[in-house]
Amino acid sequence: MANPAPAAGGKSFLQAMSTVTEEAAVPLRVVQMEGLAVLKIIKHCEEFAPALVTGQLLGLDVGSVLEVTNCFPFPIREDDEEADADGANYQLEMMRCLREVNVDNNTVGWYQSCLLGSFQTVELIETFMNYQENIRRCVCIVYDPSRSSQGVLALKALKLTDSFMDLYRNNGLTGEKLREKKLSWVDIFEEIPIKVSNSALVSAFMKELEPESPVSQCDFDRLKLSTAPFMERNLEFMIGCMDGLSSEQNKFQYYYRNLGRQQSQQQAWLQKRRQENMSRKAAGEEPLPEEDPSNPIFKPLPEPSRLEGYLVTNQISSYCNHINGVAGQSFNRLYLMKALQED
């Protein structure tokens, strides 16, 4: 693209420009992470677990691939103004320092740790919207330190779907709009596959320094028979979420009940007014208007946002996935144990 041959001829500058913008619209397909960034994220998240931490991802945006080449952690935030300003200074300082040593200083998103995959929160969506305003393409990497004891590298790259962002921006998270757009809870987050790349130098070092060992820690973790604590916490969280979901449902029921009551009140009022008008007509007077905005029963009831419910549903579904996954692993292990016992 940078050097269009004149032989390509007919293509004008304008056309060339339009192809550039078309290229920019390529959807994000893969997040390619450097091993360095992966290690740094894991280090930061593990060191502070169970506290939740965040950090910034740096990298390049190349076509449909988002390269994450480096990252830096944020200090744990305290909730006051001064700390906020401090945090912003820290971020600028860090970016400046990293630029000086030729690190890509392009923000491409942020990472955060989570507990048992419970990352679906309103804060995440708000942060994402904030980032999205400044950078066209951004991603959130979520790492779950609690699952690493299972021998799983729980690293996920997430983004919000475009249709959801549209609705969120326009405050369109009401039942009607959601139905119009056919947006259900599965369509909020989009998971993007992660690739891991390493520079040839690093790869050479690792090959040299780490002799091919038959088993590693993560194999041991995977073959551990005890899953009870993990499962218990998962279920506990899920039950909590179910409670949340049912309270959300109650909110809606309350809303619909109120709405129904209001509608019947409106009807009653309307009928009364019509009768009155009829009698006025008979008496030869001007009819009264059939609408009265000052009457409190015509005030529209605010519809509760669907967002909470959707997020809770998302969480429940991710717990279900965990449980299924871990149960599947347990089956494997149990049969393996049976086979060993029979030997």
């Binding site: 091993g35 992966v38 290690l39 894991i42 593990e46 690493s148 299972q150 799983v152 590298l153 690293l155 596959p193 992660i194 690739k195 891991v196 790349s197 390493n198 520079s199 040839a200 690093v202 790869s203 690792m206 090959k207 780490e210 060992s213 590693s216 820690q217 993560c218 996954g325 871990v326 599947g328 692993q329 494997n332």
Partner: peptide, 19 residues
């Protein structure tokens, strides 16, 4: 924790899932 396979090669196409 990450698994050396992932850190040794220059490119890993996909992270392994649970199973």
């Amino acid at each position: 924790k990450v698994g050396f396979e992932m850190l040794k090669s220059t490119m890993v196409e996909k992270l392994p899932n649970d199973l």
